[in-house]
Computed example of a mutant assay.
Amino acid sequence: METKKPKLDIEKPVVAKAFDVLVIALFAAALVYLVLQWDQLPDRIPAHFGAGGEVDRYGSRMELLLLPIIGVVMWVGMWMLEKYPHAYNYLNLRPDNVEIQYRYGVLFMNVTKNISTLLFVFLIWQTTDIALSRIDSLNMPIFITILVLLFGSMGVYFYKVMKL
């Protein structure tokens, strides 16, 4: 039977707070951009992209509203999880490493939350520009960079945890 994990008050690092502010500002800018462009959007907008970034399905412009909705729900959900690192599952959690594991967990959740939200910022911006015929396809170097940052940060987290 598993023993109960201690609840520690882990302060969010200053860099994580700054990352939150930056990402919230970028997300707000993407929403403002979407609102300003809304009346110019055609009825059919890109709704799905192939592996090369080309549009492979079109849908109603109302589908574009799913991106900010999902982005907000994910950000808020991960923000709530970030506050409760004792609720996570850990490998090798011991009394001598609980605090560092929780610190890693808080930082991991913050980075995952914010990079995931940056992905939504990117998709809102790119989908809007493709719908308005400003560009032809997703900017794949930026898209791949965001994915590398997301999955790379996960890899760094798991590497650090395994070293404990």
Rank of each mutant, 00 (worst) to 15 (best):
Phe120Leu: 08
Gly71Tyr: 03
Lys12Tyr: 12
Met78Lys: 11
Met162Asp: 11
Ile144Tyr: 15
Thr127Pro: 02
Tyr84His: 15
Arg44Lys: 14
Arg61Tyr: 04
Tyr102Pro: 03
Asp136Gly: 10
Met80Ala: 13
Pro13His: 06
Lys12Met: 13
Gly155Cys: 05
Phe27Asp: 09
Thr3Gln: 14
Arg57Asp: 08
Trp79Asp: 07
Ala16Phe: 09
Val76Glu: 01
Arg61Lys: 15
Leu66Tyr: 12
Thr112Ala: 13
Leu150Trp: 12
Pro68Trp: 04
Leu93Met: 03
Gln37Asn: 14
Leu67Asn: 05
Phe19Gln: 11
Leu93His: 10
Asn110Pro: 00
Leu147Arg: 00
Glu54Asp: 14
Val156Glu: 03
Met62Gly: 07
Leu81Asp: 04
Met109Ser: 14
Leu22Asn: 05
Phe27Tyr: 14
Gly105Tyr: 03
Arg103His: 08
Leu36Glu: 10
Gly77Met: 12
Ile130Tyr: 00
Leu123Cys: 08
Lys113Leu: 02
Leu93Phe: 06
Val15Glu: 06
Pro85His: 06
Leu41Asn: 08
Ile115Gln: 08
Ser133Thr: 06
Ile124Leu: 13
Val76Phe: 13
Gln126Pro: 00
Arg94Met: 13
Lys17Cys: 00
Pro46Lys: 07
Ile142Tyr: 10
Met1Lys: 12
Tyr90Gly: 07
Ala28His: 02
Val148Pro: 07
Leu67Cys: 06
Val14Trp: 02
Pro46Thr: 12
Met109Cys: 15
Trp79Lys: 11
Gly77Leu: 10
Val73Cys: 11
Lys4Cys: 04
Trp79Phe: 13
Val23Phe: 03
Ala29Met: 11
Asp39Arg: 04
Ala16Asn: 10
His48Arg: 10
Arg44Asp: 09
Met162Thr: 10
Leu107Phe: 09
Leu138Ile: 08
Lys7Glu: 15
Phe122Ile: 02
Leu150Asp: 13
Leu31Gly: 15
Ala16Met: 15
Asp56Pro: 09
Lys17Met: 00
Ser116Phe: 14
Leu93Arg: 06
Trp125Leu: 07
His86Trp: 13
Glu99Phe: 00
Met80Thr: 14
Lys7Trp: 01
Thr127Gln: 03
Leu8Val: 08
Tyr159Gly: 11
Tyr58Thr: 13
Lys5Gln: 11
Met78Ile: 11
Ala47Leu: 09
Ile124Val: 14
Thr145Gln: 10
Asp56Ser: 02
Tyr102Glu: 12
Glu63Asp: 10
Glu82Met: 12
Val121Gly: 01
Ser137Gly: 13
Leu81Glu: 03
Arg134Glu: 09
Val111Glu: 02
Asp56Val: 04
Asn114His: 13
Leu65Gly: 15
Gln40His: 12
Trp79Gly: 03
His48Trp: 10
Asp43Val: 02
Trp75His: 13
Leu22Met: 14
Ala51Ser: 14
Ala16Ser: 14
Asn110Ala: 15
Leu123Arg: 06
Ile142Leu: 15
Lys160Phe: 05
Ser153Tyr: 07
Ala16His: 04
Ile130Glu: 03
Glu63Cys: 02
Ile10Pro: 02
Met78Ser: 09
Ser116Cys: 14
